[in-house]
């Protein structure tokens, strides 16, 4: 029975799962970006067309989607900095696991600052 090689930097656990999460969030953000440029391009059609499109972003369901999008961006951004440190800081590979938990901590703090304000805007604000 072959056994899995032990002690590789990125096999299983924090290293691999952060890599998976980085890919998944990256793809999500990319497809949103394609849609977001197209909806913004409606400003060249007419104010009415743009306002109608952006109005659909102001519904509660889309508001929750925006919360998820921001969560994906915040994780991708902080984990990206962790990747930079793993690649360029001499002690980066040694501390890559600790740095993932720092990323998770910063993610929680940032979302705690963003979510209440955004959700209040979505569920009580405007129209």
């Amino acid at each position: 029975m072959p056994t899995a090689p032990a002690g590789t930097l990125y096999r299983g656990r924090e290293g691999m799962w952060s890599w998976v999460a980085h890919r998944v969030t990256g793809v999500l953000i990319f497809f949103f970006l394609l849609v977001h440029v197209l909806d913004t391009a409606l400003v060249r059609v007419s104010p009415e067309a743009y306002n109608a499109a952006i109005g659909t972003y102001q519904t509660p369901i889309m508001g929750l989607g925006e919360a998820g999008l921001v969560a994906a961006i915040v994780f991708h951004a902080f984990n990206g900095i962790r990747i930079l440190l793993v690649d360029f800081w001499a002690k980066g590979p040694k501390y890559q696991k600790v740095m993932l938990w720092v990323v998770v901590g910063l993610f929680v703090v940032t979302m705690a600052g963003f979510l209440p304000r955004h959700l209040i805007n979505v569920f009580t604000g405007g129209h």
């Binding site: 104010p47 963003f114 955004h118 979505v122």
Partner: peptide
């Protein structure tokens, strides 16, 4: 982060976005 802060956190957030805002 600057884009998200100005468009979603300042003022009424996502509800303030319309043609005039852009």
């Amino acid at each position: 982060f600057g884009h998200l802060f100005v468009n979603l956190m300042v003022g009424d957030g996502v509800h303030a976005i319309d043609f005039g805002f852009v």
